[in-house]
Design a binder for these strands. Structure first.
Lengths: 227, 227
DNA sequence: CGAACTTTTTACAAAATGTTCACCGATTTT
DNA sequence: AAAATCGGTGAACATTTTGTAAAAAGTTCG
């Protein structure tokens, strides 16, 4: 479920440097070395954010940016040479979400990326990762499940699954959807896996409250039901 | 985690004077000598408060203030020449939180800073690098760890790690985050390193109190848990 | 009812993750 | 210069979690 970032940059040194730091931060990174490849990879890789150099062979940054904008809302951060102030304006007009001038500090790049992702709403806010129901607290900050006042040790996958279901109470999720959204789109595994995790969650949660429950929707999937 | 203050001031004498006093009060200080650098440094340094001269080269104080306001809630204190009363009004309209007229008394500046910080509520503690729990004192001013009344010699990295974790009790930190925040974003090393330091801390801390402990959150990271 | 299909449960193996230890190199202290 | 300290690495080992397969139980519908 890592956040995916596409770097479109013809200077290998810069691209590699960016990749190095981004991968350390657990981003999933892809690199395109010219504008044409950038667009192609954008479609295949489906990144959550694009770092886009302005000066590019084949198709320049503006062109890439326009194309991306025409096809999606994916946020774009422009990388521009110093002092090209007009570029900034133009870039932002073309739909870039932010711009960074070279040479840049990695710390700044990382900060901007986080800011843009937060703004774009794709990454949950810091303090919103806590759900409270009758006798049940699902807290993803402390990674704790509190049932009837007691902390119940719960493995990561179960926490994530429960959090996911409970984030939208009463909505039914198909097993496939859950595998995509909790395990990650690149996870290939049996849908029975979901069942087993539901089972394990139910052991922890059964009979605690009549306000809510993990319901099976026959032939469809599961939901976290709230009365 | 000292409180960070950014000074934007083109007069070196004044800037240095301010820095001198502020650092003596344990603030972390950065200085920018013109408006453009001010904005840039604001983004990188991410200060908790900005001291902003009105008369600046490149981009004047108002412009800087507007930019800061557009991007954050960070409090701004304006430094204005005497008698520029209209400036006061304008400055406050642009979003400044307070203003001080030159020439100023350092005592007054410090008082205003504390007042603004307190009002902004963004800074939990005043300026204290000292955490106190049951039978445990983590003091980063003297770099001393006091466990059950006894001073336990503790290397810097362990102190910093413990301090970091204990600064936000119960919050889980991923190993990656800890490496970024304690070791520095440009540190490339194995995440096992964190484990080893946790181990060494645990040797010093285990069984001391039932009020708190260094907990492992399986599959996620570590936290300093308090009951 | 019984066939076909879906879900639950169990048990186990595989994979992932965490702990600990011994040791190395750099730095500081004696 | 020797000794001690510190920060970090890699490997062995321990533990927990996760996935799978298969049996058991439940549901639907002709």
């Amino acid at each position: 479920m890592a956040v995916k970032i596409l770097i479109v940059e013809d200077d290998n040194n810069i691209a590699d440097l960016l990749r190095l730091y981004l991968e350390k931060e657990n981003y999933e990174v892809a690199i395109a070395s010219d504008g044409g490849k950038g667009v192609e990879l954008f479609r295949r890789f489906q990144p959550d954010l694009v770092l886009l150099d302005l000066m590019l062979p084949v198709l320049d940054g503006w062109g890439v940016c326009r194309t991306i904008r025409a096809e999606s809302q994916t946020p774009v951060i422009m990388l521009t040479a110093k002092g090209e102030t007009e570029d900034k304006v133009t870039g932002l007009k073309q739909g870039a979400d932010d711009y960074i001038t070279k040479p840049f500090e990695m710390r700044e790049v990382l900060a901007r990326i986080e800011a843009v992702l937060r703004r774009s709403g794709n990454v949950p806010e810091k303090n919103e990762r806590r759900l409270v129901f009758d006798k049940l607290i699902i807290d993803m900050d402390s990674f704790e499940l509190t049932v009837d006042g007691k902390k119940i040790p719960t493995p990561p996958k179960e926490m994530e699954l429960l959090y996911h279901l409970a984030s939208t109470p009463n909505r039914v999720y198909q097993r496939n959807k859950l595998l995509d959204e909790v395990w990650g789109f690149d996870y290939f595994g049996d849908t029975r896996t979901v069942d087993v995790h539901i089972k394990r969650l139910r052991e922890k949660l059964e009979g605690v409250s009549d306000q809510w429950s993990l319901k099976t929707v026959w032939g469809v999937g599961y939901k976290f039901e709230v009365v």
